[in-house]
Design a protein around this nucleic acid. Sequence first.
DNA 1: CAAGCATTTGAATCATTCTTCAAAATCGAT
DNA 2: ATCGATTTTGAAGAATGATTCAAATGCTTG
Lengths: 203, 203
Amino acid sequence: MSARKSRADRRVDLIEAARRAILRHGTQGVHLNHVAEEAGLTSGAVLYHYPDLGELLVEAHHAGMERFYELRVKRIAQCGDPVQKLVVTVRSGLPVGPDDPGVRLLNELGGAAARNRVYAVLLTTLYDRQVAMYQSILDTGAALGVFTLIGDSLTIARNLVALEDAYGYRITARHPVIGPDEAAELILSYARTVTGNPLEATG
Amino acid sequence: MSARKSRADRRVDLIEAARRAILRHGTQGVHLNHVAEEAGLTSGAVLYHYPDLGELLVEAHHAGMERFYELRVKRIAQCGDPVQKLVVTVRSGLPVGPDDPGVRLLNELGGAAARNRVYAVLLTTLYDRQVAMYQSILDTGAALGVFTLIGDSLTIARNLVALEDAYGYRITARHPVIGPDEAAELILSYARTVTGNPLEATG
DNA sequence: CAAGCATTTGAATCATTCTTCAAAATCGAT
DNA sequence: ATCGATTTTGAAGAATGATTCAAATGCTTG
């Protein structure tokens, strides 16, 4: 069967397996066997590492969020000017398609957060970090004179992240006309208005 | 125990009970007994009216959506000028608090829509209808000269609904600083910018 | 008010999932 | 190579939920 692994390795495997199982069955609908199956193990083995399935699911969501956020940070870091940063950041917050695993995992939590305090905190924290991310780009651009902000950067940043979130849901729900490109354009239309910058691709 | 009821009455009861059960346990997590308990019946009785729990859940979500939408339409109808209409509409799209049942029910579907075609269609349709609602208000205001739209009304309407959706999630997840008032102000800040109207409360 | 129909119960059955645990397998260290 | 500890299996038992259905209940109509 499956090879033996060290404690740490196996836990990483299981978090990954749980992530896939959640995408298949939903956070509420996942069962121990789903996770075991995804990991290529038996339910007993999963329980050996995570006696409480709930904790594993939380870790899976947590890991998924961190991955999502870190990916965005990395992509921004590769950009030079604030204009490019802003455009790239908008894109990196949207799913690449209806099946994008990163965004789909986040969307799973929308409902659960209203019932589960832990999930609520995770989601809220992610939102706030993304807002700070945008705010930093906006403030830098304003300081350099490339952006002329209409309103304060906090308000704009909050709205930008909100738009991303919402269009993420629309895209994963397969809206017939709003795909990644259209969503990006909708968000950028807002960004253009409030930054006074045409936000053309540079380079 | 519970009095006997006619077929039609009981189905309404069950849809209502299912709605409550969904709020308690999530769309994935609801079980037949949860619904039966909410309805004050046994699982057998529920099954008599709805042999397939899945169908009952769909009807519950559908009914909840219609109620939510119709309430908004009614509130708009009571407003006179487009400015008041816009302000009232923004408010009516947001939860009144973290426990607002209408919005919480909608939020439940976010994750499920990625896996379930029926839920995806329901959500997408609701989104489009809300967009049309806003678009009508914006176009009327523009025609009357009270709004000077920056960009086309479809783009603005899509973004307004998107913002509502996203802040609905934040509020139900109990964001520590973004409550109904703050969310309304964030959305209105966008609306002010793109309509060129201060959107002060009239009357 | 009795007959007939629709509704509901309650209990039995079946299926699924969770949990436990002894035995087996695997690995690392000596 | 062998020992000892860790990991995994597989099977058994407990718990929960879905499903079925005969019997009971309560309307409604004639």
